[in-house]
Design a protein around this nucleic acid. Structure first.
Lengths: 233, 233
DNA sequence: TAGTTAAGAATAGTGTTGCTATTATTTTTG
DNA sequence: CAAAAATAATAGCAACACTATTCTTAACTA
């Protein structure tokens, strides 16, 4: 019991302290290393949530965390980079959980665990409200790091490498479970992106989803979809 | 043979002349009704393709079609509205095709036809290159009409009604085929949005999709996914 | 046919955004 | 403690989204 408790602490710690090399390439300085940097991250999560990414500016951010626009530019060369940083932070923690929590068991069990981690919002040691806000940003803004003129150069620079790793890792689990699967990548990204989109629809266009009907509708639907496709052949 | 030819012409005509009430609410004036309006539409398709929506401005558009920024604002109150117009134009023509081409047959046949219309790019009477460009805009920019702070008011105003109608129509086909299906809306939007996203990945992040492997991979995958889910229960 | 109206276009703005160069201040470290 | 490095503040610029106002031309009408 005590051991379990200690493991819990250690695990939370691991996920949060997990070093993500990509993040250092995205930011000009490491914002976690200074007090101002941390205020910038905290403040940006609050403000992007409040205003939406389009209305969010470094000037407004600077005002809200008590600094100047130019100082924010010393950490991030653009607001797009800041968003990329936040999104990668989120994916980085998901990847960490995936690697730690899908080690044991047979292929099916590992897949089921992976789907749970993807589809069910996970608790963290971040403050509850901050975690909710970051999830809201992922749901509302994550696609915007792809849907930009800079995708190709961002991709070349490796800014999306964590996302690629996650997709690749789950595809390997899929192939271990069902070696005949012809389109594992499509299946996995359909799940990843689709589940986020359904949560967006649930909040804003409830007519085109069933996400608002039950708490776990998204997880249930995509798990069924996933395995009925894999078990069909 | 002659009759078939005439029918072809009439059909093309129908799709293109199809009146879309939403479009009139989105634009300040009907751009199809004046020569300048048509140049604005044509020019915006070219320029959004070239620059991406973020870099696209009314000033650049005005320059490229030989008018002034203020004149463009007499047709569209913002560049977001112009994008909404283009995307709704695309959905409008898809809806028209759906209504015309999925009338006969049993539920299964109607569903198969509907999926084909959704998943396989359709020829039109627009110039081939212009049609390609509009499809590229839908793939790269369509989500941006949802992912904005104005979703809720846009939705209330009915700016997304064509999209809702399409989803609703196909959901009815799904229910006719498989009355027990618990999550038809999720299934249909997963297909609609997923297929666009896979084409985006195919062009920019080929590692996370199988869309680039064969010409028809997207259509094949989503058709399989769709029916293995519906036939599973 | 002269007069009224309205659509269309041009001019010239306003306020905001994204970003940078420069200078000043604080903190770190040899 | 002094030099170097990190951090912050000032001020500014070009571009952007959008608007108010005026001018021009075409269309209808008495």
């Amino acid at each position: 019991m005590l051991l379990l408790f200690l493991q819990e602490i250690t695990f939370m710690d691991l996920v949060d302290r997990f070093q993500i090399p990509v993040l250092e390439a995205i930011a000009l300085r490491n914002p976690q290393a200074t007090q101002l940097g941390q205020r910038i991250i905290e403040g940006s999560i609050l403000l992007i949530n409040e205003l939406g990414f389009e209305q969010f500016t470094f000037k407004k951010l600077a005002l809200s965390v008590g600094t100047t626009e130019a100082s924010v530019y010393r950490y991030f060369s653009s607001k797009q980079k800041l968003l990329l940083y936040l999104i990668n932070w989120y994916w980085g923690r998901l990847e960490c959980r995936l690697l730690l929590q899908t080690q044991g068991g047979n292929p099916k069990e590992r897949l089921v665990k992976a789907l749970e981690l993807l589809l069910v919002p996970q608790p963290t040691s971040l403050s509850f409200t901050n975690e909710k806000r970051l999830q809201r940003i992922v749901i509302h803004e994550a696609s915007k790091v792809f849907l930009t003129k800079a995708v190709d150069t961002d991709h070349q620079t490796g800014f999306h490498s964590i996302y690629l790793q996650i997709v690749h890792y789950i595809c390997d689990l899929v192939r271990a479970y069902q070696p005949n699967c012809k389109y594992p990548e499509m299946l996995v990204t359909t799940l990843l992106e689709g589940s986020l989109q359904q949560r967006f629809f649930g909040q804003h266009l409830p007519e085109v989803t069933n996400a608002s009907e039950q708490e776990d509708a998204v997880a249930v639907f995509y798990t069924q979809l996933f395995f009925s496709y894999l078990d069909h052949e």
